[in-house]
Amino acid sequence: MWQFITDRSDQIVYNTLQHANLVIQAVALATVIAVALAVLITRVPRLSGLANALSAIGLTIPSFALVGLLLPLAGIGATTAFIAVTFYAVLPILRNAVVGLQGVDKTLLESSRGLGMSELTSLWRVRLPLAWPVILAGVRTSMQMSMGIAAIAAYVLGPGLGGYIFTGLAQIGGANAVNYAVVGTVGIVIVALLADLLLLLLGRLTISKGIRA
């Protein structure tokens, strides 16, 4: 096992970084999309039910199926992987962002209007900062989930550690099959833990001390 890792260490490190890179970028984009959608939804209450339904349905689509559906559109490679991961990453963040934004005390919003804040200033300086802890919790869930989904993306030759898992499965019974699968799985778990730690730190830096639990 150790031999297996040292022989391929350069490549394993490269793939691990690729994996992290894919997921972090996808989650970052997903956060922007989800928050923007959530702002729209909280402004137009009728959309709220629709959004909940869509995100519930979205989560039931098997990731394999989605990757398959995307293939004819985006082809084989990193783009398809990125789109698929982003799609799933949006869903938990969207839910939390809607709950977070709706949970902001109405009297505070009236207060912000009463002080002469424009709609946009109030969003930027009052609603988003107050909803941020809840949004960030959604980002953390999303990040964990996306780590696993990104492994599936290796099926369309996307970047990352998923390739090892597929190689392992393909060579079942072979000499290195278990080694491949273990390196892929443990690698993803480690990346996921590190990413979570990073988000925890981000929370420390970006959540106001006045509302931190």
Binding site: T107, E110, S111, G210
Partner: peptide
Amino acid sequence: RRHVGYVIQGGSLFPHM
């Protein structure tokens, strides 16, 4: 509203500021 002061019950301060 920027030229009319407005004070409501409990102060209604923004907790994150």
